[in-house]
Design a protein around this nucleic acid. Structure first.
Lengths: 157, 157
DNA sequence: ATTTCTGCAAAAATTTTGCACCTTG
DNA sequence: CAAGGTGCAAAATTTTTGCAGAAAT
């Protein structure tokens, strides 16, 4: 007999979230102010389009002709680790960044991929239920609604 | 005077979701059954760990020693387009796949990245409010709770 | 003076694609 | 046999990294 137990699916997440943010607790890292990082943050705060690293790079090239993508990525990492900026994984696989510090949710257009901020409150009962039913304590919730945005919806009809 | 309007942030989503799924309406594509695709789906259905393409590839290599990653990706695309499988973008940036056809939500562990299925109902009032407040009609909602899973929570304390 | 940051270029990681051959219906 | 699928390898994309020089404190 040659039945074999069905193969295991290994489950190794390449980068458990924010693990790389850990700092040596003894000597806290000192951070310089740099124009690049400052402008990057301003730019993120001035929009709600959830730009990608490439979007930001493009947007800053006018001001910093010698800017490099590496710098953008490195600064985004710093801001994310600080908690100033949030990483929003998108359906296309390209990472997006969100400079909106308020807790909020998103509407994602299935057609154009645009992500729009929503100011909608989630009933707190949900987190309580999660706790009771699953013994899981959540400190953040993210809600994504999917559908067609007004523009794409109009275009289709 | 040399003030310039602050740079635009271009916003081009590399792949507006599922656009590549479109079929020529006139001649609907015929699909062959293949063992590879069948087993891939079975594997996705037999777990709730939301495996990556690489995970699935690894898991199937025992059965199909000559399997290629390209085939895995191509079949995943087919299944996603069919609506049989859902793509779950993860916080790490690596795409994950979900074979659970029931609408459900997720708990994501901040430490290990594990994604767990939740059977929790979202109040339908939310979608209504979205419609009224934003004129946005959503046909799907995804809720992700974030926090530490039991294992990681125990380890930390 | 020391640590941090930048630009550049190379590398790594993930996903897509072209092509010749094999499979399915 | 015609359309679709596979494996393989090369390419495309996105993100990370090493290094030497520049900037910040």
């Amino acid at each position: 007999m040659r039945r074999v137990s069905s193969p295991r699916i290994p489950h190794a997440d390449p980068s458990a979230q924010r693990a790389e943010c850990a700092e040596p607790a003894d000597r806290p890292r000192r951070r310089n102010r740099t124009v690049q990082r400052e402008r990057l943050l301003e730019m993120l705060r001035s929009t709600d389009t959830h730009p990608t690293a490439a979007d930001l790079f493009e947007g800053l090239r006018g001001e910093f002709p010698r800017l490099s993508l590496g710098t953008v990525y490195r600064n985004l990492e710093v801001l994310v680790c600080e908690g100033t900026v949030e990483q929003v994984p998108s359906q296309s696989g390209v990472m997006r960044y969100d400079g909106n510090p308020q807790p909020h949710h998103h509407f994602v257009c299935d057609a154009c991929g645009d992500i729009r901020d929503l100011d909608i409150q989630l009933p707190s009962a949900l987190t309580t239920r999660l706790q009771r039913r699953y013994k899981l304590r959540a400190d953040r919730v993210r809600v994504d609604f999917f559908g067609l945005c007004e523009t794409c919806s109009d275009r289709d009809s």
